[in-house]
């Protein structure tokens, strides 16, 4: 079942006009922000498909930047997100891409500052639900059917066990888990789909474990 909660149907509370082009866009931006872990100095967004063609009318641009500024779907500051970013001296750039993507509502977000960078590709699949399909070049195979978390970690022994033990302690069952790395001993990524919503307190606990760099929730 793709929709599991009544609040997927009656909700989200959001700034209009489109659950896919506005609320979904804000959620994609916010996941990028949470994985980056801080406010970036520069944001570059590449828009594809329907996002590229209708983003101005739908406020997809302000919603994406609002998300990166850590605004939730209902935060009224979304409307002024571009101005707020400018005031914060964050460099923002949008490009409209002609390339055909698998999903019509696709955005590629690149965040950076002097300490690092992050690149994420997200798609908005309807009703405000999103999927992240790529992170820093890692392809992610999230079904979108279950709540999921992404854990960026150092490729060291015990990192995976620590995360799964923490979830087990809170009686959260893992339905699907994928671990990928680009190089032995460097940065790696866990993609974990679970059976129920994960409370923030559990995410905080996972983030405090050794060798864990960032944690973000994809959907609930």
């Amino acid at each position: 079942m793709k929709f599991r909660s009544v609040f997927d149907i009656i909700g989200p509370v959001m700034i209009g006009p489109s659950s896919s082009h506005t609320a979904g866009a804000a959620r994609i931006g916010r996941v990028a922000r949470h994985l980056f872990g801080r406010e970036p100095k520069a944001i570059t967004v590449s828009l594809y498909g329907s996002f590229a063609r209708t983003y101005k009318g739908h406020g997809t641009d302000v919603a994406l930047i609002g998300g990166v500024l850590d605004f939730d779907t209902y935060d009224e500051r979304i409307v002024n997100a571009l101005t707020i970013a400018k005031e914060k001296k964050i460099k923002v750039r949008f490009t409209e891409e002609d390339a055909i993507t698998d999903h019509p509502n696709t955005a590629r977000i690149h965040l950076s500052d002097e300490k690092g960078e992050l690149e994420l590709v997200g798609i908005s699949i309807g009703g405000g639900k999103i999927e992240v399909i790529e992170l820093n070049g890692f392809a992610l195979g999230l079904s979108g059917n279950s709540p999921a978390i992404l854990v960026v970690h150092n490729d060291r022994f015990g990192a995976i066990a620590g995360v799964s033990n923490t979830l087990a302690k809170h009686e959260i069952n893992i339905g699907h888990m994928n671990v990928s790395r680009k190089e032995k001993g460097k940065e790696a990524l866990m993609t974990i789909e679970v059976d129920q919503n994960i409370p923030q307190i559990v995410l905080d606990e996972v983030e405090s474990l050794p060798n864990i760099i960032q944690v973000a929730k994809i959907s609930d």
């Binding site: 009656i10 909700g11 959001m14 700034i15 209009g16 006009p17 659950s19 009224e76 309807g126 009703g127």
Partner: peptide
């Protein structure tokens, strides 16, 4: 449509 706050039921549209 004016980018005000609403609750999607089941979508914004």
């Amino acid at each position: 449509a004016a980018m005000g706050t609403i609750c999607a039921t089941p979508t914004a549209g």
